[in-house]
């Protein structure tokens, strides 16, 4: 657990500034934003206490909000996402005994279940984020396009990160 805590702290310190400095500028066609920092919420062990998960989710969103000048937007979405994560997980995997203390990855969950889980998380996040942002300029076509494109883009990047991390852990 200590090992995980250190790894998580490092990931936290790395991913939030990376999201602000690098990934927020990798926007494709002015619609698709890669929300790579969501890995911070994905990587938490499923058996972790829900209070801790919610607080960590909120902190990730809050820090990103400071960087991006979007007060409250990411905090709110991250809190809701972290809170509902376990429920979404159980949509696809019924028992979590095998996963005690381990992060959900394609290795621990199986590729198909992990893909579905990841897609649901990312999709939910993008729907919340872009709907809140659309309060100012409502354009339905653009909203749907943003949600779909960002979900796909983020999903691909997160799956790539996952396969990199898993391979490294196996060796």
């Amino acid at each position: 657990m200590t090992k995980f805590a250190i790894r998580y702290a490092l990931a936290f310190l790395l991913l939030i500034p990376m999201q602000a400095i690098v990934f927020n500028h990798m926007v494709l066609f002015n619609v698709a934003v890669p929300l790579v920092f969501l890995y911070l919420i994905v990587m938490l062990p499923i058996t972790m206490g829900i209070n801790l998960v919610t607080v960590l989710g909120f902190l990730a969103g809050f820090l990103l909000d400071i960087f991006c000048d979007t007060p409250g937007v990411n905090s709110l979405c991250c809190t809701v996402l972290a809170f509902s994560r376990k429920r979404l997980f159980h949509l696809y995997v019924s028992i979590d005994d095998d996963l005690a203390g381990r992060s959900p990855t394609s290795h621990t969950m199986g590729a198909a279940a992990f893909m579905k889980f990841l897609l649901t998380l990312v999709g939910l996040y993008c729907i919340m984020l872009f709907t809140i942002e659309a309060f100012q300029f409502f354009n339905f076509r653009l909203l749907v396009l943003r949600i779909l494109a960002s979900t796909a883009y983020t999903f691909v990047l997160l799956y790539a990160i996952d396969s990199l991390v898993v391979r490294k852990a196996e060796v």
């Binding site: 829900i50 209070n51 919610t54 909120f58 007060p71 409250g72 809701v80 809170f83």
Partner: peptide, 20 residues
Amino acid sequence: HSKWLVFTVLVCVSCMLLFR
């Protein structure tokens, strides 16, 4: 009910930030 309390508090904080 701590999980709902934590969740509600954090959502309230976020909304306060959001609607300021």
